[in-house]
């Protein structure tokens, strides 16, 4: 019998706590597949954030550290400075990275810290029950923007990838999505490239992955995928924001 599909070695057999239709599971798998393909499972250290993916240390079959809210890039800095020959990544949501942890991500990038950040942007706080995130779209309803996000009251969504692409220490910044198989495939390529650049010692890499939150968006999983494509992508355009070479991923 030929095995055509199996769990990556870099994932444990633990059942995830993610809601039905949430795309965290896909993103976890992509990261794990890349680690498997690069053959670095035994030399990779991951950092889980505070937020929905706080328990990622139970799902990745890797050495993991759990970080305080927003501080994963600082924790990863400490890990990588000690483990210079290892592969280090952070896995962070939008509240973690784009709100409470903006200082840490910007300065990790500015120092050119040689680790990879997987930034999962679903435009809402999931774990705490659907509050407005810095990436919440204008007019998007959340628990703390019940009339829809009004720029005169709650300001504007923040585009982290574009902002980080202006930083000299960042070598590869891309925004990808996982709302259909083609995009999933592109997302994996981008993640792989980021890890490869890290292995080559090139500097800071970040992949922003647009992700769904059917539960807190109040949509079915299918509707959520469509909402991501129709509403999020126009505000958060996909593509490479910064790369050491010419061309596409």
């Amino acid at each position: 019998m030929i095995t055509v599909f199996e769990r990556p070695k870099s994932l444990t057999s633990a059942k995830t706590h993610y809601c039905p239709g949430c795309t965290h599971g896909i993103i976890h798998r992509l990261v794990a597949e890349v680690i498997d393909e690069l053959g670095v499972r035994e030399k990779t250290i991951g950092v889980s954030p505070v937020g929905c993916s706080v328990l990622a240390y139970n799902y990745f079959n890797l050495d993991m550290q759990q970080a305080a809210h927003g501080r994963a890039p600082a924790v990863a800095t400490g890990i990588k400075r000690v483990n210079r020959d290892k592969v280090v990544f952070t896995y962070q949501g939008d509240g973690d990275l784009a709100s409470i942890g903006t200082a840490e991500i910007i300065h990790a990038a500015a120092r050119g810290e040689n680790f990879t950040t997987i930034f999962v942007n679903n435009a809402i706080y999931g774990m705490t029950g659907g509050q407005m995130a810095p990436t919440t779209l204008l007019e998007q309803v959340s628990q703390t923007s019940p009339q829809g996000r009004d720029p005169s009251l709650q300001g504007y969504p923040i585009r982290m990838s574009e902002m980080l692409a202006t930083i000299d220490g960042a070598v590869f910044i891309a925004r990808v999505s996982v709302h259909n198989p083609q995009e999933v495939s592109k997302a994996k390529k981008a993640i792989k490239k980021a890890f490869e650049l890290q292995q080559a010692g090139r500097g800071f890499t970040l992949i922003e992955v647009l992700s769904t939150c059917p539960t807190n968006w109040g949509l079915s999983p299918r509707e959520a995928l469509k909402w991501l494509a129709d509403k999020m992508i126009p505000v958060y355009p996909l593509g490479v924001k910064k790369t050491p070479e010419e061309g596409e991923i």
Partner: peptide
Amino acid sequence: GVFVQAESEIAAINMVYGAAGSGARV
């Protein structure tokens, strides 16, 4: 060894967390 001037005391102590968790004297 390694010296890093962090962006804040908050970042500095979290770097300590990462390095200590990696087994270093920090």
